[in-house]
Simulated scan of single mutants.
Amino acid sequence: MGISARLVAIVLLPLALAGCLGSDESGPPSFMEDSSAPQPFPENYHSELLAFMRTYLNNPVGVRDAMMADPVQRTVGGRVRYVSCLRFSEQQSDGTYRPPREQAVLFINGRLDRVLQNASDVCVGVNYQPFPDLEHMSR
């Protein structure tokens, strides 16, 4: 086989193998595609939230007035998802504190997916509890 024939074979082999992979329709439903698929409760939401907030906040030290609501099901983007709401004040670089802000944390397939900045509609009526672990974070 010449060099150009080998090169063509090397380029085409992965494409041919990819065609063999096909989708398996007998697998579990995709939570992203099927809006009727029930979402599992995010069992590790507490530790996932703390790990995420440690990287999300510019300064995770000095958070005040931290409150969290346990995950509840809400409709987000036309799909029922588990959402946990947070309310806290973070320390600014000059030592002052920003007014408390409310954020919603969206879970998909039982795992933390993203933070929703505009949480007013999603977090209405949730039951906030003190979240001292967020106030005691370190770098």
Results as ranks from 00 to 15, higher is better:
1 M>L: 08
2 G>H: 04
4 S>M: 15
5 A>M: 13
6 R>W: 09
8 V>S: 09
9 A>T: 11
9 A>F: 09
10 I>N: 08
11 V>P: 05
11 V>W: 09
12 L>W: 05
12 L>K: 13
13 L>H: 02
13 L>K: 13
15 L>E: 07
15 L>T: 11
18 A>H: 05
18 A>P: 08
20 C>F: 12
20 C>L: 15
23 S>H: 06
25 E>F: 07
25 E>Y: 02
26 S>G: 03
26 S>L: 12
27 G>E: 14
27 G>P: 02
29 P>R: 14
29 P>L: 09
29 P>N: 03
30 S>L: 10
31 F>Q: 01
32 M>S: 11
32 M>H: 08
34 D>M: 06
36 S>N: 01
36 S>R: 04
38 P>N: 05
39 Q>T: 01
39 Q>I: 02
39 Q>D: 01
41 F>Q: 08
42 P>C: 06
43 E>K: 13
44 N>H: 14
45 Y>R: 07
45 Y>A: 10
49 L>R: 06
50 L>M: 13
50 L>P: 12
51 A>Q: 12
52 F>D: 14
53 M>D: 04
56 Y>M: 05
56 Y>C: 06
59 N>M: 11
59 N>W: 03
60 P>K: 09
63 V>C: 05
64 R>W: 00
64 R>H: 03
65 D>W: 01
67 M>R: 08
72 V>N: 00
73 Q>R: 14
77 G>S: 03
78 G>N: 06
79 R>M: 05
79 R>C: 00
79 R>I: 05
79 R>F: 00
80 V>Y: 00
80 V>M: 04
83 V>A: 02
84 S>H: 02
86 L>I: 08
87 R>M: 14
89 S>P: 14
90 E>V: 09
91 Q>D: 03
91 Q>P: 02
93 S>H: 04
94 D>P: 11
97 Y>S: 10
98 R>Y: 01
98 R>A: 10
98 R>L: 05
99 P>H: 00
100 P>D: 04
101 R>G: 07
103 Q>F: 01
103 Q>L: 11
104 A>P: 14
105 V>D: 02
105 V>L: 14
107 F>D: 08
108 I>H: 01
108 I>F: 00
109 N>Y: 00
110 G>W: 07
110 G>K: 04
111 R>C: 12
111 R>Y: 08
113 D>E: 09
113 D>V: 01
114 R>N: 11
114 R>T: 13
115 V>W: 02
115 V>T: 13
117 Q>I: 13
117 Q>A: 14
118 N>L: 10
119 A>T: 09
119 A>K: 07
122 V>A: 04
123 C>M: 04
123 C>L: 02
129 Q>W: 00
130 P>M: 06
132 P>E: 06
133 D>Q: 15
134 L>V: 06
134 L>Q: 11
139 R>A: 15
